[in-house]
Write a protein that binds this DNA or RNA. Structure first.
Lengths: 190, 190, 190, 190
DNA sequence: TATGAATGAGTGTTCATTCAT
DNA sequence: AATGAATGAACACTCATTCAT
């Protein structure tokens, strides 16, 4: 409704969402009070509830408005035939999941306790999975390798793609998508 | 699930931890009040603070006492030489990470906001990773495939192993460890 | 129920008063927010304060404009001489207090905490009382029975008349005005 | 549970109820904040919720614990045979409804919006009504006057008895129970 | 006359924590 | 070891009211 011009100060609603995004990512939804969100956004406490009647609505708006899977542009080439590794690497580089690192943390974390977030995450994950599977189908000329294996490959790569950052920060284990792409391609390849 | 005497009713401390485990897994640490924990455990509110001076100590105790990686028993055979897929499948079946599904959810979720949990999770993950890597090294006779690839394989499998349940419940995407084991083995194998 | 033009949709001010009347009667003045009144009236929140600078002014306007005792029409016969019971019954049937059941609830309830309402209620009650007393005086030919008794009778009947609905809904005790009229007439009568 | 000894300072729970009784009577339930109740009772805000998990529970406790109809003591004489006026006057003087004037205001006012209060009030009213009817039956030797009239008389007297104070303060109309007793007795009498 | 964003004090309620017993 | 009253800061949320348009 208000597209925060380029004037430097975004409108109040946007500022509230910005603040919430940062805080939810940093300390979690429960631990981020509405007062703190308002403070961060530099708006009076009451205004938060003017735009979002319940605190949960802030989370819902964030997830609704700030996470989505990009439409595939017309004529876009998804796959490099004969080169599954390159195909997956490219998918990784042009990740069609649009969500800031902060939003990704929020999705990941709050899905556990908020159904609406979980549903969104499921849908986003599904989209990326389908994209990966389709790209792999195009990349592999013949029906080489059965369909089941291809699905496992797509699912594994999707998980790595979407969660790599979170896995890295949670476990300290860094996973290079290109290396995983290469690994998976080998599993499917000649 | 936890060592309580043999008396039938577990002692208070154990009951508190049981209740906290269930509640933290269900609704998260922040959303589980100490009063509710006490209620669930059927102990008076004050007693929680007798055993755990601060609420966070309940979480710490849970993570300390109820998650660990099993020592490798003497003379245990970890690998099936020449059969990396079987080796990984077997690792999946005898998963050395001991933690109830509830504890796994807690680890996963609270690691994001509590450093001590994150550290524990990192250590557990590292242990499983090393185990997977070692098993793969033994399973693969020659130095076939370079070391880097083997590490990527071990890391990928570890991630799938540890997080499969969470991934399934968060995204709806089910991943069969045996299928992933097979996939990875192919990537490394003959 | 209230004078609005003939246009079908009442004007905003009237709609606000209608909404307030319904809400105040249903949940009380304190528990009816101005936002809710505006919502019910289907007018924007700000408009309420255009017509009624303070919330209390809505209540005052309601009481001022929607409760009154009808003037006695010229030449009206109030009493049936010699028939006090009939006289009182007729007063009950032509109750000169004009106020919807909702307004009666409001008067009754808010008088307790708002002086202006209490004063209005006192005046209305006084009018009805005087009317009842006058009618009884006319109905009873001689000075049969002293004045004091007649006043008690008028006061008792007035109370029953004005509060019967409220008493019925508050206590479950239904009182038939005709039966009370008969009772009182007997006390004064032959 | 704690019978506020004679030491001067009643226990906290009693002080909270005392404060609430005074405030609810004075300004109504809705307009009396829990903070104000706590302040009046000189207890910290949180303690109110220790004893009464919800604000409404304060009102319920008040009504439950501080209004009741006294049991008729064994061998008590309820009626003066042949003297219905004296019988009713005596009932007025020994009103079996135990409730402070403040509690009576609360009952009367909040019954309108709180079902539990309304139910209590209905029960109390019913008890007093039955008592009045029974006393009148005993006072009137023969079956003089039909039963219906006797019920109307009892209901009218009950209403005056229970609500006289409220009616007086709301309308300015004072009603003397003895005078009403006399009036009603005449209606029933020879 | 009409409108809805803005404001901040106040509301009921929850909470971790303390402490005397 | 066990208990529950006590505490006060913090929480989500509501509200009457203002004001620029």
């Amino acid at each position: 409704m208000s597209a925060s011009g380029g004037t430097g100060t975004a409108d109040s609603r946007t500022r509230i969402l910005d603040a919430a995004e940062a805080l939810f990512a940093d300390r979690g939804y429960e631990a981020s009070s509405t007062a703190r969100i308002a403070g961060h956004a530099q708006v009076p406490k009451g205004l938060v509830f003017h735009y979002f009647p319940q605190k949960i609505d802030v989370l819902v708006a964030l997830v609704d408005e700030r996470t989505f899977v990009e439409e595939l542009p017309d004529g876009a080439v998804e796959a490099l035939p004969g080169d599954p590794a390159g195909t997956l690497s490219r998918l990784a580089r042009r990740l069609p999941l649009h969500a800031s690192p902060a939003m990704r943390r929020i999705l990941f974390r709050e899905a556990d306790t908020h159904r609406s977030v979980r549903e969104r995450l499921g849908r986003l994950n599904g989209e990326v999975f389908r994209r990966a599977r389709h790209a792999l189908e195009l990349a592999l000329p013949g029906a080489r390798g059965d369909q089941a294996r291809l699905e496992v490959a797509a699912a594994t790569f999707t998980a790595v793609l979407i969660y790599q950052e979170n896995l890295a920060s949670l476990t300290g284990q860094h996973m290079d998508p290109d290396a995983v792409a290469d690994l998976i391609a080998r599993a499917l390849g000649a």
